[in-house]
Amino acid sequence: MNTHPTEPLAALALPRGPRTSLRSITAIAATTLLAGSLAACGSDTKKDESTTLTVYAASSLKTVFEQLATEFEADHKGVKLSFNFAGSSDLVAQIQQGAPADVFASADTKNMQKLIGTALAPAAFATNTLEIAVPTDNPAHVRTLADLTTKGVQLVTCAPEVPCGAAAATVETNAKLDWKPVSEEQSVADVLGKVEAGDADAGLVYVTDVKAAGDKVVGIEIPGKVNAVNTYPIAALDGSKNADLAAAWVALVTGAEGQKVLAAAGFGKA
Protein backbone atom coordinates (compact mmCIF):
# COMPACT_ATOMS: atom_id res chain seq x y z
CA MET A 1 0.00 0.00 0.00
CA ASN A 2 2.72 2.40 1.03
CA THR A 3 5.66 2.91 -1.24
CA HIS A 4 7.52 5.36 0.94
CA PRO A 5 10.75 4.04 2.49
CA THR A 6 9.87 5.18 6.01
CA GLU A 7 7.25 2.56 6.72
CA PRO A 8 6.10 3.41 10.25
CA LEU A 9 6.01 -0.16 11.50
CA ALA A 10 9.57 -0.79 10.42
CA ALA A 11 10.48 2.34 12.33
CA LEU A 12 9.15 0.73 15.52
CA ALA A 13 12.03 -1.68 15.53
CA LEU A 14 14.63 0.82 14.46
CA PRO A 15 16.68 1.76 17.48
CA ARG A 16 20.11 2.37 15.90
CA GLY A 17 20.16 1.55 12.21
CA PRO A 18 18.87 -0.85 9.61
CA ARG A 19 21.15 -3.69 10.67
CA THR A 20 20.02 -3.72 14.29
CA SER A 21 16.44 -3.44 13.12
CA LEU A 22 16.72 -6.63 11.07
CA ARG A 23 18.28 -8.40 14.02
CA SER A 24 15.60 -7.27 16.43
CA ILE A 25 12.85 -8.32 14.00
CA THR A 26 14.40 -11.78 13.86
CA ALA A 27 14.55 -11.82 17.65
CA ILE A 28 10.92 -10.80 17.95
CA ALA A 29 9.87 -13.42 15.42
CA ALA A 30 11.84 -16.11 17.25
CA THR A 31 10.37 -15.11 20.60
CA THR A 32 6.86 -15.15 19.17
CA LEU A 33 7.35 -18.62 17.71
CA LEU A 34 8.81 -19.90 20.97
CA ALA A 35 5.99 -18.41 23.04
CA GLY A 36 3.48 -19.88 20.62
CA SER A 37 4.90 -23.38 20.83
CA LEU A 38 5.17 -23.22 24.62
CA ALA A 39 1.52 -22.17 24.86
CA ALA A 40 0.59 -25.04 22.57
CA CYS A 41 2.41 -27.51 24.83
CA GLY A 42 0.73 -26.18 27.93
CA SER A 43 -2.81 -26.58 26.70
CA ASP A 44 -3.02 -30.31 26.12
CA THR A 45 -0.88 -31.97 28.74
CA LYS A 46 -3.55 -32.57 31.39
CA LYS A 47 -6.10 -34.26 29.17
CA ASP A 48 -4.88 -37.86 29.28
CA GLU A 49 -4.50 -38.16 33.04
CA SER A 50 -7.58 -36.52 34.47
CA THR A 51 -11.05 -35.26 33.64
CA THR A 52 -11.56 -31.51 33.49
CA LEU A 53 -14.86 -29.99 34.49
CA THR A 54 -15.26 -26.56 32.93
CA VAL A 55 -17.32 -24.06 34.91
CA TYR A 56 -18.32 -20.66 33.51
CA ALA A 57 -19.29 -18.32 36.33
CA ALA A 58 -20.01 -14.66 37.01
CA SER A 59 -16.94 -12.76 38.25
CA SER A 60 -18.49 -12.13 41.66
CA LEU A 61 -18.42 -15.89 42.36
CA LYS A 62 -14.65 -16.22 41.96
CA THR A 63 -13.63 -16.47 45.62
CA VAL A 64 -16.48 -18.78 46.60
CA PHE A 65 -16.10 -21.14 43.66
CA GLU A 66 -12.34 -21.39 43.99
CA GLN A 67 -12.76 -22.30 47.63
CA LEU A 68 -15.39 -24.95 46.80
CA ALA A 69 -13.17 -26.30 44.01
CA THR A 70 -10.55 -27.43 46.53
CA GLU A 71 -13.16 -29.54 48.31
CA PHE A 72 -14.63 -30.85 45.07
CA GLU A 73 -11.25 -31.96 43.76
CA ALA A 74 -10.48 -33.68 47.06
CA ASP A 75 -13.77 -35.60 46.87
CA HIS A 76 -13.44 -36.51 43.19
CA LYS A 77 -10.05 -38.07 42.51
CA GLY A 78 -8.63 -37.29 39.08
CA VAL A 79 -11.03 -34.44 38.45
CA LYS A 80 -9.73 -30.94 37.81
CA LEU A 81 -11.91 -27.86 37.74
CA SER A 82 -11.28 -25.22 35.14
CA PHE A 83 -12.97 -21.84 35.64
CA ASN A 84 -13.84 -19.00 33.32
CA PHE A 85 -14.88 -15.98 35.38
CA ALA A 86 -16.29 -13.00 33.46
CA GLY A 87 -19.39 -10.86 33.11
CA SER A 88 -22.50 -13.06 32.79
CA SER A 89 -23.44 -11.70 29.36
CA ASP A 90 -19.92 -12.29 28.00
CA LEU A 91 -20.14 -15.88 29.22
CA VAL A 92 -23.56 -16.39 27.66
CA ALA A 93 -22.20 -15.10 24.34
CA GLN A 94 -19.28 -17.54 24.53
CA ILE A 95 -21.55 -20.48 25.40
CA GLN A 96 -23.87 -19.58 22.52
CA GLN A 97 -20.85 -19.63 20.21
CA GLY A 98 -20.12 -23.19 21.33
CA ALA A 99 -17.60 -22.71 24.13
CA PRO A 100 -17.03 -26.08 25.90
CA ALA A 101 -18.63 -25.28 29.25
CA ASP A 102 -20.11 -27.96 31.53
CA VAL A 103 -21.75 -25.66 34.07
CA PHE A 104 -22.86 -22.01 33.98
CA ALA A 105 -23.55 -19.83 37.01
CA SER A 106 -25.02 -16.41 36.22
CA ALA A 107 -25.26 -13.24 38.30
CA ASP A 108 -28.84 -12.69 37.16
CA THR A 109 -31.80 -14.66 35.86
CA LYS A 110 -32.00 -12.61 32.65
CA ASN A 111 -28.74 -13.96 31.29
CA MET A 112 -29.61 -17.53 32.28
CA GLN A 113 -32.88 -17.19 30.36
CA LYS A 114 -30.91 -16.52 27.19
CA LEU A 115 -29.72 -20.14 27.42
CA ILE A 116 -33.15 -21.78 27.49
CA GLY A 117 -32.74 -25.20 25.91
CA THR A 118 -29.03 -25.35 26.76
CA ALA A 119 -29.18 -24.75 30.50
CA LEU A 120 -30.71 -27.82 32.17
CA ALA A 121 -33.11 -26.92 35.00
CA PRO A 122 -31.49 -23.74 36.35
CA ALA A 123 -31.65 -23.49 40.15
CA ALA A 124 -31.38 -20.29 42.17
CA PHE A 125 -28.58 -20.68 44.70
CA ALA A 126 -27.78 -17.21 46.06
CA THR A 127 -28.84 -13.58 46.12
CA ASN A 128 -26.85 -10.41 46.22
CA THR A 129 -27.89 -6.89 47.17
CA LEU A 130 -26.33 -3.50 46.65
CA GLU A 131 -24.30 -1.46 49.09
CA ILE A 132 -22.73 2.00 48.92
CA ALA A 133 -18.95 1.75 48.77
CA VAL A 134 -16.91 4.78 49.83
CA PRO A 135 -13.15 5.39 50.13
CA THR A 136 -11.81 4.59 53.61
CA ASP A 137 -11.69 8.24 54.65
CA ASN A 138 -15.14 8.93 53.15
CA PRO A 139 -14.14 12.38 51.84
CA ALA A 140 -17.69 13.42 50.91
CA HIS A 141 -19.15 12.23 54.26
CA VAL A 142 -21.66 9.94 52.63
CA ARG A 143 -23.97 8.28 55.18
CA THR A 144 -27.26 7.61 53.45
CA LEU A 145 -28.62 7.05 49.97
CA ALA A 146 -29.91 10.63 49.92
CA ASP A 147 -26.33 11.90 50.33
CA LEU A 148 -25.59 10.50 46.88
CA THR A 149 -27.73 13.25 45.34
CA THR A 150 -25.79 16.03 47.08
CA LYS A 151 -24.15 18.36 44.61
CA GLY A 152 -20.41 17.76 44.33
CA VAL A 153 -20.56 14.15 45.44
CA GLN A 154 -18.84 12.14 42.73
CA LEU A 155 -21.05 9.10 42.39
CA VAL A 156 -20.11 6.22 40.12
CA THR A 157 -22.57 3.46 39.22
CA CYS A 158 -22.81 0.71 36.63
CA ALA A 159 -24.57 1.55 33.37
CA PRO A 160 -28.28 0.58 33.36
CA GLU A 161 -27.48 -1.87 30.54
CA VAL A 162 -25.51 -4.19 32.87
CA PRO A 163 -27.03 -6.08 35.85
CA CYS A 164 -25.38 -4.00 38.59
CA GLY A 165 -26.59 -0.83 36.87
CA ALA A 166 -30.11 -2.16 36.52
CA ALA A 167 -30.03 -2.89 40.26
CA ALA A 168 -28.81 0.65 40.97
CA ALA A 169 -31.68 2.05 38.90
CA THR A 170 -34.13 -0.06 40.90
CA VAL A 171 -32.75 1.34 44.17
CA GLU A 172 -32.97 4.87 42.74
CA THR A 173 -36.64 4.36 41.86
CA ASN A 174 -37.50 2.58 45.12
CA ALA A 175 -35.92 5.34 47.22
CA LYS A 176 -37.57 8.05 45.06
CA LEU A 177 -34.22 9.69 44.47
CA ASP A 178 -32.62 11.17 41.38
CA TRP A 179 -28.85 11.01 41.24
CA LYS A 180 -26.46 12.13 38.55
CA PRO A 181 -23.48 9.77 38.36
CA VAL A 182 -20.24 11.21 36.96
CA SER A 183 -19.69 7.88 35.29
CA GLU A 184 -21.77 4.81 34.38
CA GLU A 185 -19.31 1.96 34.28
CA GLN A 186 -19.30 -1.34 32.48
CA SER A 187 -18.76 -3.56 35.50
CA VAL A 188 -18.60 -3.67 39.27
CA ALA A 189 -14.81 -3.94 39.07
CA ASP A 190 -14.67 -0.61 37.20
CA VAL A 191 -16.85 1.08 39.84
CA LEU A 192 -14.88 -0.39 42.73
CA GLY A 193 -11.57 0.59 41.10
CA LYS A 194 -12.59 4.23 41.00
CA VAL A 195 -13.76 4.20 44.61
CA GLU A 196 -10.57 2.47 45.77
CA ALA A 197 -8.45 5.02 43.90
CA GLY A 198 -10.38 7.79 45.65
CA ASP A 199 -11.50 9.40 42.42
CA ALA A 200 -15.11 8.60 43.15
CA ASP A 201 -16.68 9.66 46.45
CA ALA A 202 -19.14 6.79 46.35
CA GLY A 203 -20.04 3.83 44.20
CA LEU A 204 -22.93 1.38 44.11
CA VAL A 205 -21.69 -2.21 44.13
CA TYR A 206 -22.74 -5.57 45.51
CA VAL A 207 -22.40 -6.40 49.20
CA THR A 208 -20.06 -9.26 48.28
CA ASP A 209 -17.76 -6.90 46.36
CA VAL A 210 -17.39 -4.61 49.36
CA LYS A 211 -16.57 -7.65 51.47
CA ALA A 212 -14.05 -8.95 48.93
CA ALA A 213 -12.36 -5.54 48.71
CA GLY A 214 -11.39 -5.89 52.37
CA ASP A 215 -10.21 -2.67 54.00
CA LYS A 216 -9.73 -0.79 50.74
CA VAL A 217 -13.30 0.56 50.82
CA VAL A 218 -15.99 0.99 53.45
CA GLY A 219 -19.52 -0.29 52.86
CA ILE A 220 -22.67 1.59 53.83
CA GLU A 221 -25.80 -0.55 54.01
CA ILE A 222 -28.85 0.23 51.93
CA PRO A 223 -32.17 -0.30 53.74
CA GLY A 224 -33.76 -3.63 52.76
CA LYS A 225 -37.08 -2.13 51.69
CA VAL A 226 -35.50 -0.07 48.89
CA ASN A 227 -32.66 -2.42 47.99
CA ALA A 228 -32.55 -4.44 44.78
CA VAL A 229 -32.13 -8.19 44.98
CA ASN A 230 -30.25 -10.11 42.29
CA THR A 231 -30.83 -13.85 42.09
CA TYR A 232 -27.98 -16.12 40.97
CA PRO A 233 -29.00 -19.26 39.04
CA ILE A 234 -26.74 -22.21 38.24
CA ALA A 235 -27.27 -24.96 35.67
CA ALA A 236 -25.50 -27.89 34.07
CA LEU A 237 -25.33 -27.42 30.32
CA ASP A 238 -26.77 -29.67 27.67
CA GLY A 239 -24.08 -31.42 25.65
CA SER A 240 -21.61 -31.65 28.52
CA LYS A 241 -19.38 -34.72 28.30
CA ASN A 242 -19.23 -34.84 32.10
CA ALA A 243 -22.93 -34.64 32.94
CA ASP A 244 -22.53 -36.54 36.24
CA LEU A 245 -19.71 -34.35 37.44
CA ALA A 246 -21.58 -31.23 36.34
CA ALA A 247 -24.58 -32.33 38.37
CA ALA A 248 -22.30 -33.05 41.34
CA TRP A 249 -20.86 -29.52 41.16
CA VAL A 250 -24.35 -27.98 41.01
CA ALA A 251 -25.31 -30.12 44.02
CA LEU A 252 -22.26 -28.93 45.97
CA VAL A 253 -23.03 -25.26 45.26
CA THR A 254 -26.73 -25.53 46.05
CA GLY A 255 -26.13 -27.86 49.03
CA ALA A 256 -25.33 -27.07 52.66
CA GLU A 257 -21.56 -26.76 52.14
CA GLY A 258 -21.94 -24.37 49.21
CA GLN A 259 -24.48 -22.28 51.09
CA LYS A 260 -22.12 -21.96 54.08
CA VAL A 261 -19.27 -20.63 51.91
CA LEU A 262 -21.63 -18.31 50.00
CA ALA A 263 -23.03 -16.87 53.23
CA ALA A 264 -19.52 -16.22 54.54
CA ALA A 265 -18.78 -14.21 51.38
CA GLY A 266 -21.86 -12.04 51.97
CA PHE A 267 -24.34 -13.71 49.61
CA GLY A 268 -27.96 -14.03 50.71
CA LYS A 269 -30.18 -17.11 50.61
CA ALA A 270 -32.00 -17.72 47.36
Binding site: V156, S183, Q186
Partner: peptide
Amino acid sequence: TITFAGSLQ
Protein backbone atom coordinates in the same frame (compact mmCIF):
# COMPACT_ATOMS: atom_id res chain seq x y z
CA THR B 1 -10.31 5.41 28.61
CA ILE B 2 -12.68 3.14 30.54
CA THR B 3 -10.17 2.77 33.37
CA PHE B 4 -9.13 6.38 33.64
CA ALA B 5 -11.98 8.51 32.30
CA GLY B 6 -15.06 6.45 33.06
CA SER B 7 -18.08 6.18 30.81
CA LEU B 8 -20.84 8.77 30.55
CA GLN B 9 -22.84 9.60 27.46
